[in-house]
């Protein structure tokens, strides 16, 4: 390097030095990378034992290595079959068994089942015969069939001695001997619950006359020729019916 050239261009040698330096650095970098890939092994990342084979199963291994000779056999109860599988819908089964017990003939169920076109509906005049006590008759103003069929009941309304009386009867009650339809409503009621019949404006009053006539007709035989007989004879007849 001549001094003259240095003096003429003071930065020329610096440029050369920089170029040389860059080339050296590049060389060094490539060498160090190659060395790292080949040589550096971190001890903390090494496995102490060889990895298990792909098909190795722990459960199988323990079974194979277990020795059963001389061991007492522990008695184990067999697994009980699942109740849920045996009886998928227990509530329905219980209800069915109860209904079959309380309503052996199925007449009561049929009288109020939704499938029956001739079922008793609200607005009909019904007569409930009881095992203990007198029969009660009245206009059916509500039929309650909740979630459990066995609990279903009817609400009858009547006027006794000019006082409105309402009675709920359970359809499947063992105390209820029979339910009869005395008279059907001429037109289908457009309400599910005829609570409006409690108002004096809509109250039908006593249905005893209709029921008495129905009982007389049902008794068959010689019809009491209507107006000729007095009330006493009717009563006698009714009593006889009651005993049957």
């Amino acid at each position: 390097m001549s001094l003259s050239s240095q003096s003429a261009r003071p930065l020329a040698c610096l440029k050369q030095a920089l170029r040389q330096c860059r080339a050296e650095r590049q060389q060094q970098q490539t060498r160090s990378y190659a060395a790292a890939a080949a040589e550096v092994q971190y001890p903390s990342l090494q496995t102490r034992y060889p990895l298990p084979a792909k098909s190795f199963r722990t459960s199988q291994a323990t079974k194979q290595n277990r020795f059963e000779t001389g061991m007492r056999k522990i008695p184990v109860a067999p697994q009980v079959p699942s109740t849920r599988k045996l009886c998928p819908d227990p509530v329905a089964a219980v209800t069915a068994s109860q209904i079959s017990a309380l309503d052996a003939t199925g007449a009561r169920t049929r009288l109020f089942s939704q499938e029956n076109p001739d079922r008793a509906r609200v607005g009909d005049i019904l007569l409930v015969r009881q095992k203990s006590g007198e029969p009660f008759s009245g206009v059916c103003i509500n039929i309650r069939q909740g979630n459990s069929k066995i609990d279903s009941a009817i609400l009858l309304r009547n006027n006794l001695t000019r006082v409105g009386v309402e009675m709920w009867y359970k359809i499947y009650s063992p105390n209820v001997e029979g339910i009869e339809v005395v008279q059907r409503k001429a037109k289908r009621a457009r309400r599910a619950r005829l609570y409006y019949m409690r108002q004096p404006r809509h109250d039908v009053g006593s249905v005893d006359n209709i029921v008495r006539q129905y009982l007389r007709q049902r008794a068959g035989g010689p019809m009491n020729n209507a107006k000729g007989r007095d009330a006493r004879s009717n009563k006698k007849k009714n009593n006889k019916r009651g005993r049957n």
Partner: peptide, 21 residues
């Protein structure tokens, strides 16, 4: 002797009158 509040009998039936007396 009568209540308009309905009350239930032991046999499951329910009675209700229209007036209190």
């Amino acid at each position: 002797v009568r209540t308009a509040k309905k009350y239930s009998r032991p046999d499951g039936s329910v009675v209700k009158f229209d007036d209190n007396a």
